[in-house]
Amino acid sequence: MTTLLHIACSPRRERSASREVALAYIDAYRAAQPGTQVDTLELWDGALPEFDAHAMAAKYAGLNGTPLNPQQESAWATLRALAERLRRADVLVLSVPLWNFSIPYKLKQFIDLVTQKDILFSFDPESGLSGLLRDKRAVVAYARGLDYSAASGTPARDFDFQKPYVEAWLRFVGVEEVHALVVEKTLMGSEVDTAARDAAKAEARRLAAAM
């Protein structure tokens, strides 16, 4: 059975363009693969832990090879449990809006929590860093209010720190197969917004049918 994890990164549940495109992909994928199990991680439901002093101490204890105390063990177990949802999934689907040229702070918090040595990556003095999320694929639905494409002829494309950041992180933790679904110009009026969403959803359905 295939497990698909949807990491929902926008607090806008009904009007979120990134979520709408991601759900179009998920629905089409489930139609093509009826046994697919879908797990949804809502980053805005208040459940993300803080990376507090105990977690930080556990991080450095692990790097130094020293034993963890009970509070550090508890903090580290929380991070492992959160990352386990990524490890269980075969397909990762992220719905990511662009905020201030980058990603929402809740997604950054999630990345900072789970991207730890021996949780999502390993380090060997001889071979270096290695991601631990192998044999998975990722589909990322990106939403932008303006046109950030190279064809736009505007400086907007020079301020895109959303897609490069997300895809660099995915590859760092071992996910080599990454597909992008981009919906742009969502702030340019209802007709333009609707057309952009429809085009991105059609591409999402085509991608799901081909995978």
Rank of each mutant, 00 (worst) to 15 (best):
R134M: 06
L79P: 00
R87G: 01
G46T: 02
S102L: 08
F51C: 01
R157V: 13
F51D: 04
Q37N: 15
N64C: 06
D135K: 14
P155M: 02
L68A: 06
W99R: 13
A28I: 10
S74A: 15
S95W: 04
D147E: 03
P34L: 11
N100D: 11
G131Y: 06
W44Y: 15
K108M: 10
Y142L: 11
I26P: 11
T115A: 04
R88G: 07
F110E: 04
P34H: 12
G65A: 09
E84A: 15
D45W: 10
R85V: 08
H54Q: 13
K106Y: 01
A47T: 14
A61W: 04
K106P: 02
A32R: 14
T36A: 15
D158S: 09
T66K: 12
K117W: 01
A156P: 00
L132Y: 10
I119S: 02
D135Y: 10
L86S: 03
L79T: 00
Y25K: 10
L129S: 08
T66V: 15
A81E: 14
S102F: 07
L79D: 00
K108P: 06
R85E: 08
L63W: 15
L120T: 13
A61P: 07
D118A: 02
T36I: 14
L92Y: 04
F101P: 03
A28K: 12
L48N: 02
L79F: 02
L48Y: 02
L82E: 05
A143L: 10
N64D: 14
P67A: 10
G46S: 04
Y148D: 10
A55E: 00
V96Y: 05
V91L: 15
F121T: 01
A57W: 03
F110K: 03
L41S: 09
I26Q: 07
R85Q: 15
Q33V: 15
F110W: 15
T115G: 01
T154I: 04
R137A: 10
A150K: 10
A83Y: 00
D52S: 08
F101H: 12
L113P: 03
W99P: 05
I111H: 06
A141I: 07
A75N: 00
D90T: 07
S149L: 07
G65R: 10
E126P: 05
L41H: 10
S130F: 04
L113I: 07
T66N: 05
A156V: 08
F51A: 02
H54E: 12
Q71E: 15
E73Y: 00
A81P: 02
S74E: 14
S74L: 11
L79S: 00
Y60C: 00
K136E: 05
R134G: 03
L86I: 05
A89K: 01
P70Q: 11
